[in-house]
């Protein structure tokens, strides 16, 4: 049986500088999986490769048994992979409502995300509905970036540094909502540095060092092994 999502021996880089040397990871349906590692180790590069923004130079990526590496970015999103990028990338020239609407992909099942349900999910956004994307606080932008990815009704949601630089109260709000998404059955791949919050939600962890997956294990294994934290995460 093929995995819900799988990366096999991925290699990628920018121009002549190779960044990913050997990245393999697997996500089962409904799982909450983290990708951790110190700054500059290749987390965002891995995610950009998944999204088709960067073309891998070797290796394979599978979603639902279909090979997706080499597909155009928009086709990968259409397949049901939702993307919350590092740095949020809100469209400043679109209103909050338009930032959501432009991303809507209907998949013809019940209980799909739409503008109203995203506003229920992040009530702060509802208050800012007709504001421009450039008039939001960092926390609001982050919520909008998550809401926008939800509008594509993803089966797998990928988040890159979704709590970075935010006030603790906003972070907690985001962690709570990610918990709800997990409960709804959305598979999640997340890059983040907040180990405490991650350990509450994660099923499985992957650690990347200089473009290679150097450790993986379930949450129990990571939490009971402080040596790993120090060696690879610098905490």
């Amino acid at each position: 049986m093929s995995a819900f999502f799988e990366i096999k021996n991925l290699e990628a880089g920018y121009g002549n500088s190779k960044v990913l040397f050997d990245v393999s990871l697997k996500i089962a349906e409904g799982e909450f999986v983290t990708l951790m590692g110190r700054n500059g180790m290749g987390k965002s590069t891995t995610i950009r490769s998944i999204m088709g923004i960067l073309k891998p130079t070797a290796g394979e990526i599978y979603h639902d048994g279909t090979r997706i590496d080499g597909l155009a970015s928009h086709k990968i999103a259409k397949r049901g992979i939702g993307f919350v990028p590092e740095g949020r990338h809100i469209f400043p020239n679109l209103s909050v409502r338009e930032n959501l609407l432009m991303a809507q992909i209907k998949r013809g099942s019940a209980n799909e995300w739409d503008v109203d349900s995203v506003f229920d999910f992040f009530p702060r956004l509802a208050e800012r509905m007709s504001n421009g994307g450039d008039q939001l606080s960092g926390g609001e932008q982050q919520m909008l970036a998550i809401g926008r990815a939800l509008m594509t009704n993803p089966y797998l949601l990928i988040l890159d540094e979704a709590t970075e630089g935010l006030a603790p109260i906003i972070r907690d709000e985001i962690w709570d909502q990610l918990g709800k998404l997990k409960a709804m059955g959305v598979s999640i791949l997340i890059v983040d540095k907040e180990l405490d919050a991650l350990s509450e939600l994660a099923d499985h962890h992957f650690i990347i060092e200089k473009g290679e997956i150097v450790w993986q294990g379930d949450n129990q294994a990571l939490m009971s092994n402080p040596a790993i934290h120090e060696k690879f995460l610098g905490v």
């Binding site: 155009a72 970015s73 928009h74 999103a77 432009m102 594509t152």
Partner: peptide
């Protein structure tokens, strides 16, 4: 219109627009 939103989004950040499922080409 939706097409108009895609055009404006594409003008602002093409890569992000296609990573959200819009065939920018």
């Amino acid at each position: 219109t939706r097409l108009g939103m895609w055009i404006r989004a594409g003008a602002s950040d093409r890569q992000m627009t296609s990573a959200l499922g819009v065939n920018v080409g």
